[in-house]
Amino acid sequence: MMKKAETIFGKVVFGFAAVCLFGALGAQSVQAAPGIPQGFDSDGEKIFNRYNETPLAAMTGTDGTRNLNAYYDLRQYPGSPPRIPHKVATSFSGEAQNCLACHETGGYDPELDAFAPVTPHPENVLCYQCHVPMRTDKLFVESEWQSINPPKLGLSQLGGSPPPIPHSLQLREDCIACHTGPAAVAEIRVEHASRGNCRQCHLPMVATEPPVKAFKRN
């Protein structure tokens, strides 16, 4: 189970492909009146916009190849920016359009034979600022780095109740980007992609932060 994931992202595939089937289907975004505030409520507008723009087929499709182990293999600690697991052209140095061609709305890339994961923050266009490719697997010196476990899944308060959002919403405001569609990580993919008001049921309870004290009357 653990090994299978590595074979998909572990092998080196040359060339950067930009054939993204779903990209063409994106509708124009909904615009509020000028002068209406933007960027409040953890940028919740993103969820509604993506929900409205993404065809249902694109939200419910799955190829089931990405799993949580593969996901955390690309990260150094829970919440760190993932490294780029595929080959990128050396001349490419942060031109957003190249990354976003695949990662803005997702879609199938025949060269990598994989669906591109969708970024929850396409407005940050200097991708290389945080995401870097891996050119060698040799270390300069061994590291004693250790991190904490990633948040457990299934932290539902009751059997069957909606699990809380175990991660911070910073840069990960757009639930639909990561939790639906063919590239979604199998373990965290929602089975009810047809719902659009995610935070109606799922509240943030950041698992890596100390818990809030229970309510007590003064």
Binding site: A32, A33, E45
Partner: peptide, 14 residues
């Protein structure tokens, strides 16, 4: 006031 409802609406009028 601008709310979560305004975010989801096609148009928010104050």
């Amino acid at each position: 006031r601008t709310t979560r409802t305004s975010q989801a609406a096609d148009k928010s009028i104050l």
